[in-house]
Design a protein around this nucleic acid. Structure first.
Length: 588
RNA sequence: GCUGGUGUAGCUCAGUGGUAGAGCACUCCCUUGGUAAGGGAGAGGCCGCGGGUUCAAUCCCCGCCACCAGCUCCA
């Protein structure tokens, strides 16, 4: 993936972000030329390019982009020099007001007192901007306008909606081409596209948006993941619990969700004239289990885990495939422990996270989020918990980036961002200390001194939610799942119909060993079956003809290659078992 | 929720103010084929849903639902 660097790379006159910002100015001037009277919003460089926001009387269309690009090239040749001019605050506002640039006038007020106010100009177009910029717009570079979207002025939905044009720029055409190819690859791997192509999941207009239907293929993936998670949890001393999806509203009164989270929760339903709510989180349920008996320090830590399905209201416009839905299952757990146990528990959770994420080939970065302005709990407990998070990480040699003041109001946390095979970052795992719920539900344990004390509650999720994680996984692997979690692991293909019995026998053997196989034994051409298996990204094809039947062998064709390897069925089976049981990412 | 766009066969997409088409997939027949498309025939559509305009609406208008690109928010 493209790297954005603060400093220019070797052979490049300016940093990429400077170039992109300058190209956004170039674009703005072209838009002004084509649409006189346009009002300008902001136009910064961003991670992979730039954008500029405009207020136009007419909506832009995709096809207008070519026109704007053409005008940009014309301007770059005609008036290439970019020059900076310092102005006073009053002068800036007066000149912008005279042009009717109301958003820009407002932008002047956003500049802190005492800072320089500058205009950057090329030709007769100028913009309020702190720079820096490239010196000339006719330097060698490559750019492309990519898309149009709406966006609120200053990101505030109560303010006017502007039209945003996204684009990108690079110093070299090859780099732009590579970037466009990357965007293309992202589109090809889109989990929604692969979701239909590989028959993974669906959503339904008649069922409502934001609800995912898992088809057999994706059900197999999820089942494999759940099994993996269960093993790793059991190994680490977690207990499995199950809690109801619907409980009396008063539970969320006590937990505080009704006060702080109501707009995410669905309306109450009446059962025996009593209001009930669908759960938006699993924590209250786990606390209720904790509360059913008195706990001694000897019982702790208690680790309750649940694949808990929750329902949350999301605004219709944010729903997105499996990634953003209204009902989803969290791989949730709550650890109840004494303050002294916190550090060891955190280290253990970090180990679990590491194990799980590495199994999928994800690399990750961890962020320590500390006390925000508005927080509950004493300074001491915050300091102690933050220290425990730090020490737990240190114990595992895990470097922490600092997210100052990014903690939840109820406690500090460590968040994980994973990097997928396309170089994109996603927020995933999280470990959060909670001083709030133990308080609200008044849970206690009896300490060594015989006194009742407050346990600390640790919330943690490894995958986050099955929906979002697996949606991401589809794109990470591009549909090419490793053997252990592939929807179908083996496709069996007879060369002629007379080999079908042999193939059926092998299929039965593998299925008895809990492999997911598809036996393509119906009459039809071998080549079509190979095409089909290839399309479904099945890791292994076993093809059998006269030679294989005679020797109890199989011709093995691995996903992604056209080569075949003939081996005994026993050897293949051993290979398959090893790949599955080690959860290998390889096919050899 | 907001701005703009889209909704036609299982999938990808043409199309028209006079109730619809292609390719792939599917079914059947022929083909027995050594690693990505053999040949033929057939079936399949309340043209997202509801209302309006019109002699007539899949097409024009309005409302709703869902989806897409973003904004804002988030597991």
């Amino acid at each position: 993936m493209q790297q954005e660097s603060a400093a220019p790379q070797v052979g490049e006159p300016f940093p990429l972000s400077t170039l992109r910002h300058s190209v956004s100015h170039l674009m703005a001037s072209a838009v002004e030329k084509l649409y006189p009277g346009v009002r300008f919003g902001f136009g910064p460089s961003i991670e992979h390019g730039f954008y500029y926001d405009f207020e136009l009387p007419e909506p832009l269309e995709e096809k207008d982009l070519a026109k704007i690009e053409k005008e940009m090239r014309r301007i770059a040749q005609k008036s290439p020099e970019l020059v900076c001019e310092e102005v006073t605050r009053d002068e800036a506002k007066a000149r912008l007001a005279k042009l009717g640039q109301t958003f820009k006038v407002e932008a002047v007020d956003l500049i802190p007192e005492g800072e320089k106010i500058t205009f950057w100009r090329h030709g007769d177009w100028f913009d309020l901007c702190e720079g820096p910029h490239v010196d000339r717009l006719n330097r060698a570079f490559a750019f492309k306008l990519l898309s149009i979207a709406g966006s609120y002025w200053r990101g505030d939905e109560k303010r006017p909606m502007l039209q945003r044009i996204y684009g990108t720029a690079f110093w070299k055409q090859e780099e732009l081409d590579a970037h466009l190819k990357w965007l293309e690859e992202i589109k090809l791997r889109d989990h929604r596209k692969l979701g239909t192509d590989l028959d993974l999941f669906s959503t339904h207009q008649e069922a409502g948006g934001g609800f995912v239907f898992w088809h057999p293929h994706l059900g197999a993936v999820r089942h494999a993941l759940e099994e993996f998670l269960a093993e790793e949890h059991q190994r680490r001393g977690y207990d499995f619990v199950f809690t109801p999806h619907v409980v009396r509203e008063q539970v969320f009164q006590v937990s505080g969700h009704l006060q702080n989270y109501a707009e995410m929760m669905y309306a109450p339903m009446l059962i025996d004239e009593m209001p009930y709510r669908v759960k938006p989180m699993n924590c209250p349920g786990h606390v209720m289990i904790y509360k059913t008996r008195a706990h001694s320090y000897r019982d702790l830590p208690l680790r309750f885990s649940e694949l808990g399905t929750v329902y949350r209201y999301e605004r219709s416009g944010v729903l997105h495939g499996m990634m953003r839905v209204r009902g989803f299952t969290q791989d949730d757990a709550h650890i109840f422990c004494t303050p002294d146990q916190l550090e060891a528990e955190i280290a253990d959770v970090l180990d679990l996270i590491d194990t799980v994420l590495k199994t999928f080939g994800y690399s990750y970065t961890a962020y320590l989020a500390t006390r925000p302005e508005k927080a509950i709990g004493s300074e001491e407990i915050w300091a102690k918990a933050t220290e425990a998070l730090k020490k737990g990480a240190a114990k595992r040699g895990l470097p922490l980036e600092l997210d100052e003041g990014g903690g939840a109001f109820y406690g500090p946390k460590i968040d994980f961002k994973i990097r997928d095979s396309l170089g994109r970052e996603w927020q995933m795992s999280t470990v959060q200390c909670d001083f709030n719920l133990p308080e609200r539900f008044d849970i206690v344990f009896t300490d060594t001194d015989g006194h009742q004390k407050r346990p600390i509650m640790l919330h943690r999720a490894i995958l986050g939610s099955m929906e979002r994680f697996i949606g991401g996984l589809i794109e990470h692997f591009g549909g090419k799942f490793p053997v252990w979690c592939a929807p179908k692991q083996v496709a069996l293909i007879p060369i002629r119909e007379e080999h079908a019995d042999y193939v059926r026998e092998l299929a039965k053997t593998l299925q008895h060993e809990l492999f997911r196989v598809t036996c393509m034994d119906d009459p039809g051409h071998m080549n079509n079956k190979i095409k089909e298996a290839q399309k479904l990204q099945i890791p292994f094809m076993l093809i059998a003809g006269d030679r294989e039947v005679a020797e109890r062998a199989v011709a093995v064709r691995r996903r992604g290659t056209r080569e075949q390897e003939v081996m005994s069925f026993a050897d293949f089976r051993a290979l398959l078992v090893r790949l599955r049981d080690t959860r290998s990412l390889e096919l050899a």
